[in-house]
């Protein structure tokens, strides 16, 4: 498997309404390369369903010896991650928004 990096960006609402699509999209992207980078800068809202998909992706990545990197966390994402203390779970550098 090539040490390539796939990169997608998610934007808008990562919520229950799009959770099923989101899951398919993220998992597909994840399996395309060894490393998936997700740009979260455009995320305006994150709910439990959306968060779950991200966590699923992280776990799946770990299980399949892939790597998931979340980048450019938007304020909405940061808020949730901080509230739920998920920084360590995802292990990404979170940009502190001023």
């Amino acid at each position: 498997m090539a040490d390539d990096i796939n990169r997608i960006s998610l934007d808008g609402e990562l919520t229950i309404y799009h959770a099923a699509d989101l899951k398919t999209r993220v998992l597909e992207a994840l399996r395309k390369a060894r490393v998936l980078e997700i740009d979260l800068s455009g995320v305006t809202e994150l709910d439990t369903a959306g968060l779950q998909v991200l966590m699923l992706a992280k776990q799946t990545a770990a299980a399949e010896q892939r790597e998931l990197r979340l980048l450019q966390h938007s304020p909405a994402v940061v808020e949730i991650f901080e509230m739920l203390d998920l920084g360590a779970f995802f292990g990404d550098a979170v940009l502190i928004h001023a």
């Binding site: 699923l56 203390d85 779970f89």
Partner: peptide
């Protein structure tokens, strides 16, 4: 602490159910 342990394998997971 968010407990994701109940998350099933990717293919079985239904994005509209809550596992957390």
């Amino acid at each position: 602490a968010t407990v994701p342990d109940a998350l099933p394998p990717a293919d079985e997971m239904d994005a509209e159910l809550c596992y957390l």
